[in-house]
Design a protein around this nucleic acid. Sequence first.
DNA 1: TGAATGATGCACT
DNA 2: GTGCATCATTCAC
Length: 196
Amino acid sequence: MARIVEVEAYLGPEDLASHARFGRTARNAVMFGLAGIAYVYLVYGMYDCLNVVTEEDGVAGAVLIRAVEPLEGIEAMRRARFVVEGRRRAIREASDEARAAAAQRLAGVPVTRLASGPGLVAAAFGIDRTWTGTDLCDPASPVRLEPVPAADALADDAVRITTRIGVGYAGPDWADRPLRFVRRSHPSVSGPAAAR
DNA sequence: TGAATGATGCACT
DNA sequence: GTGCATCATTCAC
C-alpha cells in the first residue's frame, strides 16, 4: 500500500503534451473511455508509466501517477522493482557480479525513494503495459485506488502546484500550465531534493 | 549539487 | 526513421 504524493494532469486532444493530442489511436484509446481505468504506456523504451483515466466516456483525460510514498509491503515493492529491472537487457546480459551489485544497490534504496518517479511507481507495483484497461476502482483489482480517510486529508497549502516535467516539446503554452500537483516538501516526490 | 550521457522499444509520421 | 510524459551513473565543480 502506498500514498500518492505526486501527479500530473493530461487533458484531451487540445493538450499538446497529452498522448490524446493526435486523437484516438490504438494505443491511447482507453484515455477516451470510462474514468478509473488504467492506461499504461512505455516511455524511452524502458519505463512503464501508470495513468488513471479521469473524464467521462468519450472525453480524453488522464492523471499520471508520478510518485507514491510506500506504506506497507515495502519488501514486495523492492522485489517487484528487482524483477522489472532484471528484464532490461543491460542487466540480463551483465555478469553475475554486476547483477549482484545492482541487487545490492536496490536493497540500499531508502523506502521514500522506492517509487519516487513515474517509471519507479510502475516497477514497484509490477505494472506494465498489459495492465492497460484494468479497473482501478474495482475492490477486487490487485492494484486499486482507495480514498484517503477524511482525517488525513491535506490542507490546501500542503499541495504545491507546478508545471509538468519533461513536456517542453508541447510548446510554451502547454508546457507552462500548472498541471503538476505534489505534496509539499515530501521526501517521496520525484526529482532532486531541492525541487520538492 | 548539478549537468551530461547512455540505455532501449515502440508508436507515430 | 524519428523522437519520446525516464532513470542511474559518471564526471566536473
